[in-house]
Design a protein around this nucleic acid. Structure first.
Lengths: 347, 347
DNA sequence: CTGAAAGCGCTAACAC
DNA sequence: GTGTTAGCGCTTTCAG
């Protein structure tokens, strides 16, 4: 059995067989190169026949363009991220870029994995995650790899990000809940060192405060179903139980609903309204039918791709955070009108 | 602003600054190389200081080892796959391999994406999907890249695969449903050109037949929530409605349950028992509390990693399909005992 | 339009 | 132990 790379057919083989120079053969693979149509045709024909394809590694070494985009994703267990990846990766592929994936797990291994990734000289790095150590950010910077955060506002001033309007979205949700008769707002948080957590929390609390309502808070600590369920259990057992709950993410909200219904025997939305953020697919399933703020995922991916495609000098105008609006999706876990009217209308 | 790769610090820079040859500097990065401890130390110190890291591309060209594993995943919308990826990718990272991801979407672009991937000379390719065109398989073979299928039995004889015992699992589920009083079994299928669909279907139907029961079938056509829901709607509206339903995947089963409950007003499991396959996280949520066959995901990933780590000559003993047993997880959508007893026991 | 030559950053014999 | 010499497979001047 031959060793792996050695045995592949190379440009030299083609050149020898065709009686041409390697340079000529190489030109056949570059649409803009000066080469006779007939020459190109015969090269391509033989290449197809032999299954030859230029070696991306060798090419990258010279051109300096690897056509690799590093994608760092933190939490594939939160359905939001697979959904994002399912859009982003094909989009990159369509543009001729390969996705080199780093799953930020276990936490301690992220930096090693990132270094490994960077040794392949990705042209860009996309962090698809609510959090990432600032150390990792520095690692990319040191390697000279432009970095884009998606769904996260970085701490560092120089970084770029595509996010949705978390504060505005949370405020809109507060308004929606208030319109539905909310008197005692509750909030369940996610992982606390994340911009999504902070901004959604602030937006919600601020809007409630402006309406004269204090928010009962309960930390979830992570964006997981279990965290939401446990936090809700704690929060709903308090004496001053909220009558409406905003959760920092859908996955938390789904857990919270189940806590309310299954663990505490509450009715949703009659006894407790619940709202989330993201609009993951499960939110739309009738079992939960969760009211949520939809993240503009398609637009976010589009912007990310645009950044990759024409950002030869993105570093120049760095420090820009692009905010896209979120969209309220009112479903069955919140009351469109105050409870008194609601109970008459929807028995 | 400098162009990307050109400006990086290279081994030459270090050599010049240290007054050594490049060979010596290079040796410092190879633990097994003959080099004085002091020399190595000063090289590594300067490297750390300058942020130097050997270029993986250049290294790969010579060694023939790219340390890249190509991972092709078909359907990130089915939560089973993110779950698998969340285990596999960190495992590869831990072993010093990078994951190059191809999302098989849109279908027409898969082959181009795969070619792009192969041009980076991955040492191995893992197909994490129920289906992939045989053309893609051939493409890998032509490129001399060893291929492993996970959760799919390939058509080609030469290929290797790690799967779970779909037939046995489906049969076990049939037995479980029969023990719960099933008289009129129903089956909802997934994407039909997949081994998971075929094997689960066969295992179920065969076991039912052996007990003298014919199975009411309804094609889903895909492994999605909507497909399950729609297929269930069709199936449950038939005159001869099943009293128990086995679905080729959890994601189908969740849709089927919602069809039964929300669209047709049936009780699960009293009027209709439902079972799935995979044990995705949502299956355990109380809203559905789905009985299912758990895929041995951790073991499957472990086997995959083992294949990558010591398969220098995997091609030699190819054609091997490794089957791991699935585990029955009995939850609330099936009856542990016949309905008559069940209704007494669990009012 | 085509060929010759140089070299990307690194490793791998082989000398010393 | 360390330096020298060849390349890996390809692109890219620069001649012709």
């Amino acid at each position: 059995m031959p060793t792996r790379l050695t045995q592949r057919i190379t440009i030299k083989d083609l050149a020898r067989e065709l009686g041409m120079s390697v340079a000529t053969v190489a030109r056949a693979f570059h649409p803009e190169a000066d080469i006779a149509a007939g020459t190109r045709a015969s090269v391509l024909r033989l290449a197809a026949e032999r299954g030859y394809q230029p070696d991306a590694l060798a090419r990258s070494m010279i051109t300096g363009r690897t056509r690799i985009v590093g994608v760092v994703v933190a939490d594939l267990h939160n359905p939001f991220y697979p959904q994002a990846l399912a859009l982003l990766s094909p989009a990159l592929q369509g543009a001729g870029f390969n996705t080199m994936l780093v799953v930020a797990e276990p936490a301690g291994a992220v930096d090693a994995a990132l270094r490994l990734l960077l040794s392949y000289r990705p042209e860009y790095a996309v962090v698809l995650a609510t959090s990432l150590t600032t150390e990792a950010t520095a690692t990319c910077a040191a390697a000279g790899v432009p970095l884009l955060f998606v769904n996260r506002v970085p701490d560092a001033r120089e970084a770029r990000a595509v996010v949705c309007d978390n504060r505005g979205g949370a405020a809109a949700m507060a308004a929606h809940l208030i319109a539905g008769g909310m008197r005692r707002p509750g909030f369940i948080g996610g992982q606390e060192n994340t911009s999504t957590h902070r901004e959604r929390r602030e937006g919600f609390i601020k809007h409630c405060a402006e309406t004269g309502m204090a928010v009962r808070e309960e930390p979830g600590g992570a964006f997981t179903y279990d965290a939401g369920r446990e936090a809700a259990r704690r929060l709903l057992n308090r004496a001053d139980r909220p009558d409406a709950l905003f959760c920092a993410g859908d996955i938390l909200a789904l857990g919270a609903i189940d806590a309310a219904r299954c663990d505490l025997g509450l009715r949703v939305p009659e006894d407790l309204a619940v709202a989330g953020f993201d609009d993951i697919p499960m939110a739309a399933w009738p079992a939960h039918d969760l009211t949520t703020m939809r993240q503009p995922l398609a637009a976010m991916v589009e912007k990310t791709l645009a950044w990759v495609l024409n950002a030869p000098d993105a570093a120049v105008d760095a420090g820009c955070v692009l905010r896209l609006p979120a969209e309220l999706v009112a479903r069955g876990t919140t009351r469109p009108v105050p409870l008194s009217l609601f109970q008459e209308t929807c028995p």
